[in-house]
Simulated assay, not measured.
Amino acid sequence: MSAPATASADNVVQLPQRAPIANGHLADADLDRWANRLARLLLAMGATAGERVALVVEPRIEAIVAEAAVRKIGAIPVAEHAPTPRFGITIREHRPALTDAVDWLVLDDRGTLRHYLVSSDAPLSGADLRAAS
């Protein structure tokens, strides 16, 4: 578990602490940590602020985390049908029907999961974002 941020940066979405996941609901603190991990994967792929990132994700919790991760890096979440972005987030079930012109991050791919699980869930810093640009 990461320690809470002591100073807020302009690019960090600070969410209030709530109870842990209960009855299928995602606590804000968990959403924040999961989105930080996924945001780091997007940055490692080369996604940057202002860039459009396609989202073709289910179920709902994964879609919420994916959108939060995209917004954390300052990118813009868009539908798959938007003018072709460089990057996208999806799941294996949808990948065969999607264009190869987009660099897809497949959430339930074994390699993605391996990288996700070892990524830091600490809040993104300005240095994290500058290193990617």
Rank of each mutant, 00 (worst) to 15 (best):
M1E: 11
M1W: 12
M1G: 11
S2C: 12
S2D: 11
A3P: 09
P4D: 07
A5F: 07
T6H: 13
A7I: 15
A7K: 14
A7H: 14
S8W: 14
V12R: 14
V12P: 07
V12N: 10
V12Y: 14
V13P: 10
Q14R: 15
L15Y: 07
P16Y: 15
Q17N: 13
R18N: 14
A19E: 11
P20F: 07
P20A: 05
I21V: 15
I21F: 15
I21T: 15
A22D: 10
N23S: 14
N23Y: 15
G24L: 04
G24A: 04
G24S: 01
H25V: 12
H25G: 09
L26D: 01
L26M: 06
L26E: 02
A27W: 00
A29D: 11
A29K: 10
D30I: 08
L31Q: 05
D32G: 09
W34A: 11
W34P: 03
R37T: 00
A39W: 02
A39D: 00
R40I: 01
R40T: 04
L41T: 01
L41V: 04
L41C: 02
L43M: 06
T48K: 10
G50M: 05
R52G: 04
L55V: 06
L55T: 05
L55S: 00
V56C: 12
V57I: 03
V57W: 00
E58Y: 12
E58H: 11
P59K: 06
I61W: 10
E62Q: 14
E62K: 12
E62I: 08
A63C: 08
A63N: 08
V65I: 10
A66I: 05
E67Q: 15
E67H: 15
A68Y: 04
A68N: 08
V70C: 01
R71K: 15
R71Q: 15
R71S: 13
R71Y: 15
R71C: 12
K72F: 01
I73F: 06
I73S: 01
I73V: 03
G74V: 00
A75T: 04
I76W: 09
P77W: 04
E80K: 12
E80Q: 14
E80I: 11
P83C: 05
T84S: 12
T84V: 13
P85E: 03
R86K: 10
R86S: 09
F87T: 01
F87M: 03
F87D: 02
G88Y: 02
G88N: 02
G88H: 01
I89N: 04
I89Y: 01
T90L: 02
I91P: 03
I91Q: 07
R92H: 13
R92N: 13
E93Q: 14
R95E: 04
R95M: 03
A97S: 13
L98F: 05
L98E: 06
T99I: 08
A101I: 09
A101M: 09
V102P: 04
W104F: 00
D108W: 06
D108N: 07
D109Y: 05
D109K: 04
D109M: 06
G111H: 12
T112V: 06
R114H: 13
R114E: 12
H115Q: 13
H115V: 10
H115W: 12
H115G: 09
S119Q: 07
S120Q: 02
A122E: 09
A122F: 01
P123T: 03
P123K: 08
L124V: 02
R130A: 15
A131Q: 09
